[in-house]
Nucleic acid binder design. Structure first.
Length: 572
RNA sequence: GACUAAGUAGCUCAGCAGGUAGAGCACAUCCCUUUUAAGGAUGGGGUCCUGGGUUCGAAUCCCAGCUUAGUCACCA
C-alpha cells in the first residue's frame, strides 16, 4: 500500500469519524433526485412555485463557511448550483453535530451529498437552494484539483495532458467543457444513426477477431486464440464483411466499427479508433457524395444550429454541395503536371521534379498518392470531394465507367485532412481476384501494407453483389472537427497511454512475494530501495540484512525481528 | 523510430550565477459568524521523475533511462 499523503489521511480519519457518529459514508439506498441544477437555474425565475421543495444530489466543488451559515457549490451532471446551508435549519434541535462536525469538519470538497430544500435567490442575486436536510452519499478520499473561474478566466486549471488522460475521471469532474465534448460525440453518432435508420438501413455487428485482416491497407495487431490454437487479427476495417451482407440481400448496412491498427500514434492517430462504414445496394459514388453532404450538414446543424463550424482556425461551411474534383485535375491545378496516363518511370521523374520522395517499393498508385499527399491535400480546407483515383491504389473499388485506369472513388477532405472515403464498390469477382493478386505482388515487393487475399470474399462476389456504393468515415476525426478538438485524445475518453509502473502501488512487491518474501517486510525492503526480486538478489546480503534490522526499529514496526535463515531463504 | 522541450507539495507554477526547498489555491488549528476565484492569523505537507557522474556540496551542471507533449517518418 502506498503511503498516504497528509490530506488523504485526514479524509480517512473523517471517514472513520462519520462511521463513529453512525453515519454511513457509502449508503446503499437510492437517493430520490427531483431536480437538476440546470433546470432549476433556468426555470426558477419564471415558475418559482415549481421549486418549493426539491432534492438534488451531486459533488461538493467549493465551500465558503462562515460560522452558522455556509455556501456550497454543488455539481451535478448538468452543472452547478449554490447551496445555502444554515446551522439551525439542518439542526433544528439542541444537537448541532450535523452542522458543526459533519458538515464543517468531516465533509470535504469532492464529497457527494444529497440535499433537500427550497429554491430562493440570495442577496447577491444568485439562485440557490436553502437546505433543510443533508445526506452524505459518498465520501471522497482523495483531494481534487481546485479549479476556479471568474468572468470566464480560469485559475489553476487542471491541464496537464498526461494526468487528464490517465485520470479522465478527474478531468471530467473539474473540466465541464471536457464532459461536453463527449455529449457532442454521442449527438454526432446518434444523428448519423437516425439518418441511416430513417432510410431503412440496418445496423449490424461484424467480427473484430478476423483470420484475414481485410478491407484496408494497414498493419494489424495479432492475437492468439487458445482453443483453436490459431493467430487472429484485430480488425483493421469491416468493409469485406459488410459487402458480404449486401450479397446476402440487405438494402443497406452500416456499422460503427472499432478498428485497430498497429501504427504510429500522434495528434490524429490512436491505435484503436472508430470508423463508420455504410454500404447501400443499387447506388454509386455520385449518389454517395450527395448522401454524405446531407449527413454532414445535418450533423453541423444539430450541434451548432448552423452549417458553419470553426475548425482549427478556419471557418468551415458544411453546407451542401461540396466541391467535386477529379484527383488528376487537382494535381494538374496544383503542380502543372498531368499525371493521367503516365507510366511508372514518368511518375518517378515527376516526383523527382516536384521534390516528392519515393522508394523502390512504390507502384503507380502510391507514386500518384505521394504527389497528391505532398502537393494537394493540405490545400483542401473547405469540404472537397476528390474523385477518380488511379486503379492501383484502390483494390476494392470499381473501375471508372469512362476510364479503365481510374476508379469510381472519392475521398472527402476538410481542413487538409481526409475525413471520408467511398467507392462504387467492385462487384466483378474476377476483377476483384486479379486486384488481390496484384496486392500480393506488391506485398512480395516489400509493401507491408498490401492486402491479403480473402477467397471467401471473392466467393461471395461470385454469387453476385448488386451495384453498391460504400463509404467509410472516421468518427474520431469527425468529432474533432465538429468540436474543434486539437488532438484525437480530446475526443477519446481513454486514449492509449503507455502503462506506468506505479511505484508504491499494490502490485509492487508481487514479484518479491512470489519468491517467498514475507509480506510484512516488503515495505521495509522498499524503504531500503529494494522494489523487486532482481534488486534483492543484486544487493549486498550482509549490508541489507543489517539495514532491514535498523529500518524495523526506525519504522517502529510491530513485526518480529528478521532471522538470518529466513532472510537467506528469500535469496534462494 | 529520429529530433526538440518538459517533469519541483493534492493542483497550478516559481526557484537553476551549484550552498538548509518557495508561492497561490487546497489541507489543519484558531479568530471572525460574514457570501461569489481569494476574510485574517498560524501551521503541516516534498524520493525536486529514476539511476549514475562531476563537486567539499547538485532541484540546479554532465551522461543514461522513464513518462508526456510537439515536429518529422508511417498511417485514418
Amino acid at each position: 500500500m502506498a503511503e498516504l499523503t497528509e490530506q488523504e489521511q485526514i479524509r480517512r480519519n473523517s471517514l472513520a469519524e462519520l462511521r463513529n457518529l453512525g453515519i454511513n459514508p457509502y449508503p446503499a439506498a437510492l437517493y430520490d433526485v427531483t431536480a437538476k441544477s440546470a433546470d432549476i437555474l433556468e426555470r426558477f425565475p419564471r415558475e418559482p412555485e415549481a421549486f418549493t421543495h426539491v432534492s438534488v444530489a451531486g459533488r461538493i466543488m467549493s465551500r465558503r463557511i462562515m460560522g452558522a451559515a455556509s455556501f456550497v457549490e454543488l455539481q451535478d451532471d448538468c452543472g452547478r448550483i449554490q447551496l445555502y446551508v444554515k446551522r439551525d435549519e439542518i439542526c433544528p434541535g439542541e444537537d448541532k453535530t450535523l452542522y458543526n462536525t459533519v458538515f464543517k469538519r468531516l465533509l470535504d470538497i469532492g464529497d457527494i451529498i444529497g440535499v433537500e430544500g427550497f429554491v430562493f435567490v440570495t442577496q447577491m442575486g444568485e439562485t440557490s437552494i436553502h437546505v433543510t436536510k443533508l445526506t452524505v452519499l459518498s465520501k471522497s478520499l482523495r483531494p481534487l484539483p481546485i479549479v476556479k473561474e471568474k468572468d470566464g478566466v480560469v485559475y489553476d486549471a487542471f491541464n496537464d495532458p498526461e494526468q487528464r488522460y490517465r485520470m479522465r475521471y478527474v478531468d471530467l469532474i473539474v473540466n465541464p467543457q471536457v464532459r461536453e465534448v463527449f455529449v457532442q460525440r454521442a449527438k454526432i453518432v446518434n444523428t448519423m444513426r437516425d439518418y441511416f435508420n430513417e432510410q431503412g438501413y440496418l445496423e449490424v455487428d461484424t467480427p473484430v477477431l478476423q483470420s484475414i485482416p481485410g478491407g484496408a491497407a494497414a498493419r494489424p495487431f495479432i492475437t492468439h486464440h487458445n482453443a483453436l490454437d490459431i493467430d487472429l487479427y484485430l480488425r483493421i476495417a469491416n468493409e469485406l464483411y459488410l459487402k458480404r451482407l449486401i450479397v446476402g440481400g440487405y438494402a443497406g448496412v452500416y456499422e460503427f466499427s472499432r478498428n485497430f491498427r498497429n501504427e504510429g500514434m500522434d495528434r490524429t492517430h490512436n491505435p484503436e479508433f472508430t470508423c463508420m462504414e455504410i454500404y447501400v445496394a443499387y447506388k454509386d459514388y455520385h449518389w454517395m457524395m450527395t448522401f454524405v453532404e446531407t449527413m454532414l450538414a445535418r450533423i453541423a446543424n444539430t450541434l451548432h444550429g448552423t452549417t458553419k463550424v470553426s475548425v482549427w482556425g478556419n471557418e468551415i461551411d458544411f453546407k451542401a454541395p461540396f466541391r467535386r474534383v477529379p484527383m488528376c485535375q487537382l494535381i494538374k491545378e496544383m503542380t502543372g503536371y498531368d499525371v493521367e496516363g503516365m507510366d511508372e518511370a514518368q511518375l518517378r521523374d515527376t516526383c523527382k521534379a516536384l521534390g516528392v520522395e519515393t522508394d523502390s517499393t512504390m507502384g503507380k498508385g502510391k507514386l500518384i498518392d505521394a504527389i497528391f499527399g505532398e502537393k494537394c491535400e493540405h490545400t483542401l480546407i473547405q469540404p472537397t470531394f476528390v474523385t477518380d483515383y488511379p486503379i492501383e491504389m484502390s483494390p476494392l473499388c470499381k473501375r471508372h465507367r469512362d476510364n479503365p485506369n481510374l476508379t469510381e472513388r472519392f475521398e472527402l477532405f476538410v481542413c487538409g485532412k481526409e475525413l471520408a472515403n467511398a467507392y462504387s464498390e467492385l462487384n466483378d469477382p474476377i476483377d476483384q481476384l486479379e486486384r488481390f493478386q496484384e496486392q500480393l505482388r506488391l506485398s512480395e515487393k516489400g509493401d507491408d501494407e498490401a492486402m491479403f487475399i480473402d477467397m471467401d470474399f471473392v466467393r461471395a462476389l461470385e454469387f453476385g453483389m448488386p451495384p453498391t456504393s460504400g463509404m467509410g468515415i472516421g468518427i474520431d476525426r469527425l468529432v474533432m472537427m465538429m468540436t474543434g478538438a486539437q488532438s484525437i485524445q480530446d475526443v477519446l475518453l481513454f486514449p492509449q497511454m503507455k502503462p506506468l509502473t506505479m511505484s508504491g502501488d499494490n502490485n509492487e512487491g508481487d514479484d518479491l512475494s512470489q519468491h517467498g518474501v514475507d509480506e510484512n517486510w516488503i515495505p521495509v525492503l522498499a524503504k531500503a530501495g529494494i522494489k523487486n526480486y532482481e534488486q534483492l538478489k543484486a544487493a549486498n546480503p550482509n549490508k541489507l540484512f543489517n539495514d532491514l534490522g535498523g529500518l524495523r526499529k526506525k519504522m517502529k514496526l510491530e513485526i518480529p525481528a528478521l532471522r538470518r535463515e529466513v532472510f537467506d531463504a528469500w535469496l534462494g
